[in-house]
């Protein structure tokens, strides 16, 4: 049911764990649905994501998409990270079963939530709101039900 890439990221998740010196932290999802993702960012003065970490409660796909999302944004600028779409995560994992696409959406949302928190901590409330309000670019067929 899962690609080798998904299983690899599940078995050996990259960047797992909280960052003590994170300056942007976001958490999305809820336990009722069975997945929660928490994303930790350490953004430097040049706006580059120097380090990233995640913690996830969820299925194999939830853990693998979190792991892949951290890989895709590590070393990137905030602007570049905001371009991360759920379909890019799915592509990088060489596919997900249809019923697991929502996990990739959650990974994208977790990144955005962490970036919004980073802006908010810097006193850039407008930017934070903009990131939160931007309709996500993903192509999920149905809204994530909570």
């Amino acid at each position: 049911m899962y690609t080798e890439k998904v299983l690899d990221h599940f078995e050996h998740p990259r960047n797992v764990g909280a960052l003590d010196d994170a300056n942007g932290v976001g958490m999305v999802g809820n336990a009722k649905c069975g997945d929660i993702m928490q994303m930790f960012l350490k953004v430097n003065d040049d706006g580059i994501i120097e380090d990233v970490g995640f913690k996830t409660f969820g299925c194999g796909a939830a853990i693998a998409t979190s792991s892949m999302a951290t890989e895709l944004i590590k070393g990137k600028s905030i602007e570049e990270a905001l371009q991360l779409s759920n379909s890019a995560v799915v592509e990088a994992l060489e596919g997900l079963p249809p019923q697991k696409i929502h996990c990739s959406v959650l990974a994208e949302e977790a990144v955005r939530a962490a970036i919004a928190d980073y802006y908010r901590k810097k006193g850039m409330e407008d930017k934070a709101k903009e990131v939160e309000n931007t309709k996500c670019s993903c192509e999920h067929e149905e809204p994530h039900e909570h």
Partner: peptide, 30 residues
């Protein structure tokens, strides 16, 4: 508590143990 069934099954499977779960993720529903 605090962890999800499908992840447990996958990890057990990687260790050669076959089990099942009542998690939504294994039933295909929410």
């Amino acid at each position: 508590k605090y962890i999800e069934g499908e992840s447990i099954l996958l990890m057990l499977d990687m260790a050669g143990i076959a089990a099942s779960s009542g998690s939504a993720c294994t039933s295909g529903s929410l």
